[in-house]
Design a protein around this nucleic acid. Structure first.
Length: 703
DNA sequence: ATAGGGTTAG
């Protein structure tokens, strides 16, 4: 829809009248006089029915007034109709659908009426409707957009980050001699700044710069920037992380005696915080006489983004009232910086506090944290919560649900259920959705489905494949043995192959024992990421598999010399909604004794069926550098599985998440446990998913 | 005759 509109708008013949800057009298203001049905008698201004409109407190009451207006004929007076539109579109109990119905019945809506509806749509959930109306205004009636119309449609363009459409509005406003209107300029400054998040903006050097250009241009046009302008200018500085210019703007505000209200102070706070001057921000914050929820949240978010969690928490605790944005700032900061456990603790706190109700953002964060931890119980609970509260499944929420189910091992639910439903409901998948879906295809070995989707991405869904999608596709192809196809795909990439692309190829080479290609992939990978521990491990693994021990020890030496060390293995498991973490040889858990005796029991049972722990040179090298025989039993994933066996009902599958690749011995043991104890085990490691059932694993022993 | 532009979380 947006694309269609953009195309239309960019070809719109601009035939706007030039708004005279001087006060010339327009001798022929309306070449097409209104039809006779329209009553232009101004005495209606004080009509008693009109005063009723202002007393309405519900749509039902408005409808009653509407009926009276129809009966009395007042509805056919454009001014009176405009009053009804304003009430139905902008009042606190507004219903845009109803406003639109009313609008469609007005024979000759005046410009005020058009503008009111365009304005209401601009800040609605569907701002494209502003564009639709704008086009109708241009093509279906004699009226022309005026200085009120443009700020609203530009606002809609900001909301949608519709850069091209917004730029067309800018051009049209200039042609209509409205290029110096401070309201239009301010909305444009904000618009250009707000388009700065797009990938496109990054490629083109950033639109915040255009916002600043507009501000500089105001000087030449002799338009005096005001406080609202400066909010937009500061916000553009924030996007550019340009502290120097930000400071200059603050002094400009002072020099030009621009009134500094709370909003402007907040914009300054945000600029200082995000551009890296916490001191300036703190100084200003402490000095501010009046603070609102924005001031507090800006400080909170600033500290959280800097990783200063204690300080963030202090600000949060000091807040006089905490709305959902404040909670979200805290929760998302944890979730985004690899602290999913802390994120969920805060999420739980929010539910207990009853300060605010979780919204889409909160739920997306909580789902993402659940996915990171493999906490499917909580993930499912959130799924139910969404349904129970009738929360509309938008793209972000659906994508997070798909991610959560896929990462927690329910690929069927993620792909078959959620993704299909998403398409059915016409919710547009975005780049992240495709990453999750392709990843799920790779884990379930859905080569054809993955390939089809990948090639549909751009033509059907308008999502340009990025490096992550290529990496997934290389993985899907390579894993199924189509190494040559994978190489061809890499060659055809319009963007430079990234480390994850080479990593995927390397993994596939390991699986299919292609040393030659592996060496190539690895050297490309190490060129991009010289400190990639996994690359060395994989390459050693392939060489060891084919007995090239010289190369193996050479690689090991290389690793040692470069001081590369493996991060400690860590596994987590969710039991009754609480996430437990285990490190290698961990005995800090309060049920540690029971866990270790369970492990002994397992070892004995395995031994009785003839199982010999796999302590081959290969595994020692690859998985745990200084692994001793007994250390096999102390791996974090084994501890987590043992804990699951003693603490969960036999009917429940055991879900474990490990931060590194699962060790070969642990993999064999998990398979046997799934048979001996008749338990499903779902183990997600850093790279893929292992679903153990009846003695087998879904990865078919290739990982 | 009526009105408009701005700041925090993802």
């Amino acid at each position: 829809m947006t694309q269609e509109l953009m195309a239309t708008l960019s070809t719109v013949p601009v035939s706007l009248p030039r708004h005279s800057k001087s006060n010339h009298l327009n001798l022929n203001p309306n070449p097409n006089p209104s039809p006779p049905t329209v009553n232009n008698d101004r005495s209606f201004t004080n009509h008693p029915i009109l005063s009723l409109i202002n007393q309405c407190t519900s749509t039902t009451q408005l409808k009653q007034v509407h009926a009276q207006m129809l009966r009395s004929g007042l509805f056919f007076d454009p001014f009176s109709a405009s009053k009804l539109i304003t009430a139905s579109a902008l009042s606190p109990f507004s219903s845009l659908d109803y406003a639109r119905q009313v609008f469609d019945q007005i024979p000759q809506p005046n410009l005020y009426t058009w503008n009111t509806l365009i304005r209401a749509y601009a800040s609605s959930s569907d701002p494209t409707q502003s564009f639709v109306l704008f086009l109708q205004l241009l093509h279906q009636c004699e009226l022309f957009p005026d200085k009120f119309t443009f700020p609203f449609v530009i606002k809609a363009a900001s909301e949608l980050k519709a850069f091209r459409v917004g730029r067309v509005f800018h051009g049209m406003a200039i042609k209509a001699s409205l290029g110096s209107d401070i309201f239009i300029l301010n909305s444009l400054v904000h618009f250009y700044g707000s388009c700065g998040d797009l990938d496109l903006a990054l490629l083109q050097g950033g639109f915040p710069e255009e916002a600043l250009e507009l501000f500089r241009g105001m000087e030449k046009e002799n338009v005096k920037p005001n406080d609202v302008t400066m909010v937009g200018v500061l916000s553009a500085c924030t996007k550019k992380l340009d502290l120097e210019f930000g400071r200059w703007v603050c002094s400009y505000i002072e020099r030009n005696e621009i009134s500094v209200n709370l909003t402007l102070s907040n914009a300054m706070l945000d600029m200082y915080m995000k551009c890296g001057s916490v001191e300036d921000a703190k100084r200003l914050f402490d000095k501010m006489q009046e603070k609102d929820i924005f001031s507090w949240t800006t400080m909170l978010d600033g500290y959280a983004k800097l990783g200063e969690y204690d300080e963030a928490r202090r600000v949060f605790d000091a807040m006089p009232c905490k709305d959902i944005a404040a909670w979200n700032a805290l929760i998302s900061a944890y979730e985004q910086s690899g602290k999913p456990k802390e994120a969920l603790v805060a999420f739980r706190e929010l539910q207990l506090s009853k300060d605010a109700k979780p919204d889409e953002v909160t739920l997306v964060c909580a789902l993402s944290a659940s996915a990171q931890l493999g906490a499917m119980d909580l993930g499912r609970w959130i799924d139910v919560y969404i349904k129970k509260h009738g929360i509309k499944l938008n793209c972000h929420l659906t994508t997070s649900l798909i991610d959560m189910y896929a990462k927690c091992g329910d690929l069927e639910k993620a792909l078959g259920d959620l993704f299909s439903k998403m398409l059915e409901a016409k919710v547009k998948p975005n780049a992240v959705t495709f990453t999750n879906v392709l990843c799920a295809c790779s884990h379930t070995g859905l080569v054809n489905e993955g390939q089809t989707l990948f090639y549909q991405m751009e033509p059907v869904y308008g999502v340009v494949p990025g490096e992550k999608h290529y990496a997934c596709m290389v993985d899907i192809l390579g894993r199924s043995g189509l190494l040559q196809e994978a190489v061809e795909l890499i060659k055809k990439m319009p963007i430079a192959p990234t480390a994850s692309v080479w990593g995927a190829l390397l993994g596939a080479c390991r699986l299919h024992g292609n040393i030659e290609l592996a060496e190539q992939a690895c050297s490309y990978l190490l060129e991009l990421e010289p400190r990639n521990h996994g690359a060395y491990v994989l390459l050693s693994n392939i060489n060891a598999k084919t007995g090239k021990w010289d190369r193996v020890s050479g690689l090991r030496k290389l690793m040692r010399d470069s001081g590369l060390r493996k991060e400690p293995g860590c596994s987590s498991i969710e039991v009754n909604g609480i996430v437990h973490e285990f490190l290698v040889g961990d005995n800090s858990h309060k049920l540690s004794k029971e866990i270790y005796s369970k492990l002994e029991e397992i070892a004995a049972r395995l031994k009785s069926i003839g199982y010999v722990p796999n302590k081959s040179h290969l595994l020692q090298l690859v998985e745990e550098e200084d692994m001793k025989e007994q250390a096999l039993n102390l791996h974090s994933e084994k501890l987590a599985i043992a804990f699951g066996l003693i603490s969960m009902a036999p009917s429940q599958p055991i879900r474990v998440v490990k931060n590194l690749r699962v060790c070969g011995d642990c993999h064999s043991v998990a398979k046997l446990i799934s048979r001996l104890y008749d338990r499903e085990i779902l183990l997600r490691d850093r790279y893929r998913f292992h679903h153990f059932k009846g003695g087998n694993c879904s990865c078919m022993d290739y990982w």
